[in-house]
């Protein structure tokens, strides 16, 4: 997904060695929360990606190689329906204001709930809390939104 805004602070770019360290850190964190990192690994254009199931939610985790290492966690919620888009977009913005440390967004025709933070200082407990929160949001939102707006829930045909 292209970015409209920069991330603000311009710190020195991580060296290849630091990035490898970040990669080991994420894999360690995934292992610590019970995810088999090598099985969950997916091909991405740059950086690294993993996907796995948490409850009813599909979770995607990305490690971006740009600037400093960033951890992105996102969960697809639903495909956009063919109708009532104005009402749905408005509802998404209303809900967006109620989320803590997470944002709703649309990429192509899928609604996502999203969190991003600097990798530096992240430990397994915090990563676990982030993933739990996102999974919980995704789980609550997909049923409610699909019922109200009739969009197909992500990954459920």
């Amino acid at each position: 997904m292209g970015r409209f805004f920069g991330r603000g602070e311009q710190q020195p770019v991580e060296s290849a060695g630091q990035f490898a360290g970040s990669l080991r850190a994420v894999e360690g964190i995934l292992a610590a929360i019970g995810v088999d990192a090598s099985a969950a690994r997916m091909e991405v254009e740059s950086g690294f990606g993993w996907h796995f199931q948490r409850g009813s939610a599909l979770i995607e985790v990305y490690l971006t190689p740009e600037e400093q290492g960033y951890l992105q966690v996102l969960s697809p919620i639903m495909h956009l329906p063919q109708q009532h888009l104005l009402a749905l977009y408005r509802r998404l913005l209303e809900l967006n204001l109620q989320l803590t440390n997470a944002a709703l967004g649309v990429h192509e025709d899928v609604v996502y709930v999203f969190h991003e933070r600097l990798l530096a200082g992240l430990d397994a407990a915090e990563a676990d809390a982030i993933i739990r929160r996102l999974a919980q949001y995704a789980d609550e939102l997909d049923d409610a939104l699909a019922e109200e707006f009739g969009g197909r829930m992500y990954g459920r045909g």
């Binding site: 063919q82 109708q83 009532h84 888009l85 104005l86 990429h107 192509e108």
Partner: peptide
């Protein structure tokens, strides 16, 4: 709701209209 455009989206077939040449549903 303005969702009966005569021309459906060439990509997703939705009839929800477009903004700056992009479909309001699939972008």
């Amino acid at each position: 709701y303005g969702e009966s455009e005569a021309q459906p989206c060439t990509h997703c077939r939705a009839r929800v209209g477009q903004y700056e040449g992009r479909c309001l549903r699939c972008g």
